[in-house]
Design a protein around this nucleic acid. Structure first.
Lengths: 246, 246
DNA sequence: CGAAGATGCGAACACTGTACGCAGGCCGGA
DNA sequence: TCCGGCCTGCGTACAGTGTTCGCATCTTCG
């Protein structure tokens, strides 16, 4: 925004047309391009969450007007699709290894979760648009998972993929939402938990089991989340192994 | 909107203040109330999806101005929280039965999925706000699940709940997103699949396993979704059973 | 009857995504 | 060298959003 203003001022472009007010692109700024737009969108999404991303702000960051973006991107939704696929490139899936497919699958799911937590807008986004994205990185991710399960001997790898991903997405989506709340509060996770505790306890008042789980504030919330994910992942993988005929 | 306009016209209220232009509430319309607002919001969400719900449109449907809603609801987000909790009341969880906890758990998850598909905005919403909602119906739902798992002998029922719900949410979120896309297309699910097929095949071109799964269009997409959910659910429940020591 | 509080709402504000059409730079052909 | 067509950027504008404010009205109680 500041950059754009300064350009307008320094070059006198805008409302007053004039021969001297010519437009000259700064050579260091690498021009507007789809790749640059998507990259900057990811940065903004990471920094301030999904509802803080507007075409105008994004344009300003790129020293461009809001509507210039539409030369490279059809619509905001399309831009978000591109952003999703962009960060999905970060998910690493180990190469197929029939001997220890359980470790490989566990690692892949963990990498997905890590990516989703690094970009807390990813999981809700995947949720809103589903897996019908067809972006190249999502395809590659699925294919590598399919490799893994096929090598392990699953007759229908896509079934196993769907199950594993449903778990990973479900867990990540909840976790990302939680982390977003925490981030918005400005407090540390532990402080936030402590502040929420009374309300939670009241809401769980007439529920025996829930009251138990809200009894004491957890000492290490982040570690607890790791455990929770690992615990459930183990259960899913165990179930898959049984299905395979272990 | 039409209703509101007609009231304004018929009673002459609005821009011209006049002694005769008095406001009289139709006695059949049961006045604005939080419950009525939430109920109507759910109807609108079900009908046209989440991005079609605006405070103005909702107000119009209730023969009220947009800003009147704010007397009963602090903000739109709060309204959405209330709507989420409202529909969560539809999820039925069988009473605790130690003998056949697997069937009970399976049924609970199925009911959750059915609810999520009946209200396709629910799953994305739960994803965006997480399970930190603390609404009474969500609490009751969790408590009943905890009952189930505790009766089955799980030492930490909350762990089992988290795992099961992560799977159910992940699967439902994807499915709801898919159904939303289908609905927006105006076509039947089978037709939509057929139209998407070429694009999908192209995107999967250099991926062996994916290409296989896109080889032929499925004859019964809805039934296939049911199968997929049941398959994964079975795996999760199996894993839980193993963990229990069965 | 009259005061106090609850309720509805019109107008306004600061935003949003996006369509349109103009202006200027870039590039291939005469 | 000039010229025409294309690609790119963007100012303006439009319809819509959530929400605030202050006024008008209704309801209720003393």
């Amino acid at each position: 925004m500041t950059a754009k203003t300064s350009r307008n001022e320094s070059q006198g472009r805008g409302s007053i047309p004039s021969v001297w007010a010519r437009r000259r692109r700064e050579p260091d700024q690498p021009a507007l391009s789809r790749a640059a737009i998507v990259r900057e969108a990811v940065v903004m999404l990471d920094a301030d969450g999904i509802e803080a991303l507007s075409m105008r702000k994004l344009g300003a960051r790129l020293n461009a007007g809001a509507t210039s973006l539409y030369r490279h991107v059809a619509t905001k939704d399309e831009l978000l699709e591109l952003a999703v696929d962009e960060v999905l490139a970060e998910v690493v899936v180990p190469a197929a290894d029939a001997a220890d497919w359980r470790a490989a699958v566990t690692e892949a799911a963990g990498s997905f979760r890590a990516t989703a937590l690094r970009h807390p807008w990813l999981a809700p986004m995947l949720g809103q648009a589903g897996l019908a994205y067809l972006g190249p990185n999502l395809m590659a991710f699925s294919e590598r998972l399919a490799d893994l399960f096929a090598a392990a001997g699953f007759p229908e790898p896509s079934r196993a993929i769907d199950t594993l991903l449903a778990y990973a997405i479900g867990m990540s989506v909840s976790e990302a939402a939680w982390l977003t709340m925490v981030a918005r509060s400005g407090e540390s996770e532990a402080d936030f938990v402590a502040r929420l505790m009374p309300t939670a306890r009241e809401a769980a008042a007439d529920h025996r089991h829930l009251a138990d789980s809200y009894a004491a504030p957890p000492p290490d919330p982040a570690g607890l989340r790791d455990d929770k994910f690992a615990y459930g992942l183990d259960i899913v993988v165990e179930g898959l192994a049984r299905r395979l005929g272990g």
